[in-house]
């Protein structure tokens, strides 16, 4: 009986690890990156930045599509070919579940130098989300 209870409790703990979600997570070419970090990119290479967004509070009035990506203080769009990182595919969000959404930003590191990528989600009542990645293209 004791052993069975112990197993149930351990399974609950391990299960809880996987059920933990978060607001926004980023994966650059499959490797997790966190805001505030400097990302080193190679000039001329193509990259995929996967952005996963989970609503961790109820009544979130901000749609995933309203998430803004600002590169060098400009909206990051496919039409902007003069930016240091050129977006090669439009930003399209897909719903993984009711509260989980995902998009993949495909881009090419075009110019060498330093720039920033700011990710913003505005919330009218609470703090919202505003984080920056520092990018160095070599």
């Amino acid at each position: 009986m004791k052993k069975k209870l112990l197993i149930v409790v351990l399974l609950f703990v391990f299960g809880a690890v996987y059920s933990f979600a978060c607001e926004m997570t980023f994966f650059l070419d499959g490797k997790q990156v966190v805001p505030g970090q400097t990302l080193s990119l190679d000039q001329g290479r193509s990259y995929e930045l996967r952005v996963n967004f989970v609503e961790d509070h109820g009544n979130c009035p901000v749609e995933p599509e309203e998430t803004a990506f600002l590169l060098a203080e400009e909206k990051w769009k496919t039409t902007k070919t003069a930016l240091p990182l050129v977006l090669t595919r439009n930003v399209v969000w897909t719903d993984i579940s009711d509260r989980e959404h995902e998009t993949v930003l495909v881009f090419t590191a075009q110019q060498t130098g330093k720039t920033t990528l700011e990710v913003i989600r505005d919330c009218t009542k609470k703090a919202g989300y505003d984080e920056i990645f520092y990018i160095t293209v070599k």
């Binding site: 979600a21 978060c22 966190v34 805001p35 505030g36 509070h57 984080e131």
Partner: peptide, 14 residues
């Protein structure tokens, strides 16, 4: 671990 990894307050959902 999860808060440091995901840079967000993961626990607030629970």
């Amino acid at each position: 671990i999860t808060t440091t990894q995901f840079v967000t307050l993961t626990f607030s959902a629970y």
